[in-house]
Design a protein around this nucleic acid. Structure first.
Length: 445
DNA sequence: ATCGGCTCGCGCAA
DNA sequence: TGCGCGAAGCCGAT
């Protein structure tokens, strides 16, 4: 049974006689999905069936072909897997707030179930739809192991304040997933295969990506590969960007093609030292869930406005400091700065759709250093990350940028020009920590 | 190579 | 009210 703590009732509604509709949004997978599992539970209770719907909005902010292809290829697999379980899967196209209410009415839907997402647009969609319908609307947190609103009821100050709260509840929530059994949807509800839209290649200057395959199956292969080859030694080697000793699971997490919950279960079972497992689980659970906490409880998660007071004050005091270098968005985007390491990080992102964690910090902090204002730095960093990273438009990205540029979840440090008391980083630090030359040559596209 | 200082504020102990 | 310590560092002294 799905833990009741995962479930939030968005409105008081009256059930109708039709199917339970699961509006799949953030968690785009057929297995290990608490929102789908709960939908099936509800359907069984009411002797009806589950209908899964995905709403594809091609006008979604900063949609690009790179991310869209990754998502749609994953959804094609979801379609195949759901249909094999006799669960109908339907694709709607357009703004969900316009598409879903008539769809629910047409099917005489009993209840609308959806997955949890802390981002603004998703919450606006859900609120608008809840206002338009009279049936119950239910949110299931299928993305976090300890549900966001259970882990904490407020914005947390740092990893150290949320960590004990999550750890205390982890044992309650980290249960095994049930297998999904074949369902008994009426024959006519299993419609003909979806005619997936061709994605217009509007950004054909963006290199396509071949090193990572989309979808649930590929995600599980990537997980197996990580456990077998890179978990041992992860605690130290993850910090050496030239080794590429990372899990590469982030795009799958972003599109919900694998559940962090599943990954945690497999890592715990894996044969590796506690130090390595703990290092990975700390990142995947505590820091990832801290990102959801920030975006959920701070409506200004993607601007300077959301930053802690001390950080805004110190950035303000240094507004008119002289900048040694100033670059436009165009110069950043084309990796035309004086700094080879920065350019390499930018090229890594443009050409591969990812950037190593250490360099994400360095990259964002230098944008702060080389732009006229923290506001501009924030918007450039978010724009580039959302455009090029396969895991862009994710709470992790917004929170990471707020950490680097705005001291979020961090402490004040020695005061210096432009940064004020925001933690400073420079390439000397990188030189001390890893093989900078090798990283640069690996990313000299 | 290693250590302490830099600096702010939360959360807990007292 | 005091105190320990924190999402990833830097720098200079030893």
């Amino acid at each position: 049974m799905v833990h009741p703590g995962r479930i939030t009732h968005n409105n008081v509604g009256t059930e109708k006689d039709g199917p339970i509709v699961y509006w799949m949004s953030r968690d785009q997978r057929s297995s290990d999905n608490w929102a789908l599992i709960h939908s099936i539970e509800l359907a069984n209770q009411k002797s009806t069936y589950v209908l899964v719907v995905f709403c594809l909005d091609l006008s979604y902010p900063s949609v690009i072909s790179r991310s869209l292809n990754f998502m749609i290829e994953g959804l094609k697999e979801v379609e195949k897997n759901l249909v094999s379980k006799k669960i109908p899967f339907i694709l709607l196209q357009g703004d969900p707030t316009h598409q879903l209410p008539p769809f629910l009415a047409h099917h005489n839907a009993s209840t609308l179930v959806t997955d949890f997402d802390p981002l603004r647009i998703k919450r606006q969609w859900k609120e608008s739809i809840s206002r338009q319908v009279t049936i119950p609307v239910i949110t299931v947190d299928a993305h976090n192991i300890v549900p966001c609103q259970v882990a904490s009821t407020k914005q947390e100050f740092g990893a150290y304040t949320i960590r004990p709260k999550i750890n205390k509840l982890l044992a309650d929530y980290i249960q095994d997933f049930p297998e999904i059994e074949e369902q008994k949807a009426p024959e006519e509800s299993i419609t003909k295969p979806i005619n997936w839209p061709e994605i217009p290649n509007i950004n054909n200057c963006i290199p396509s990506i071949t090193w990572i395959k989309p979808g649930e199956h590929a995600a599980n292969i990537a997980l197996r590969y990580f456990i077998e080859h890179k978990l041992e030694g992860y605690a130290t080697k993850r910090n050496l960007p030239e080794l590429e000793w990372t899990s590469n699971l982030s795009p799958y997490f972003h599109f919900g093609q694998i559940a962090p919950h599943r990954v945690a279960l497999e890592i715990i079972k894996a044969n590796a030292t506690a130090v390595d497992k703990d290092a990975f689980l700390e990142e995947m659970i505590v820091r990832r869930e801290l990102s959801d906490n920030y975006c959920f409880y701070n409506p200004n998660y993607d601007t300077v406005e959301g930053l802690p007071a001390w950080a805004k004050t110190t950035l303000d005091l240094h507004r008119s400091d002289e900048r040694e270098h100033l670059y436009t968005l165009d110069a950043f985007e084309h990796a035309h700065t004086h700094d080879k390491l920065w350019n390499a990080a930018q090229k890594e992102m443009v050409h591969t759709g990812k950037m190593h964690g250490y360099l994400r910090m360095y990259w964002a902090k230098k944008i702060l250093e080389w732009t006229v204002s923290p506001e501009e730095a924030f918007s450039i960093a978010i724009f580039l990350n959302d455009k090029y990273s396969l895991d862009g438009r994710d709470p992790n990205g917004y929170t990471g940028i707020a950490w680097a540029i705005g001291g979020l979840h961090d402490r004040a440090w020695f005061e210096r020009p432009v940064y004020g008391k925001i933690r400073y980083m420079n390439s000397n630090g990188a030189q001390r920590k890893f093989n900078v030359e090798e990283y640069i040559s690996k990313n000299s596209f």
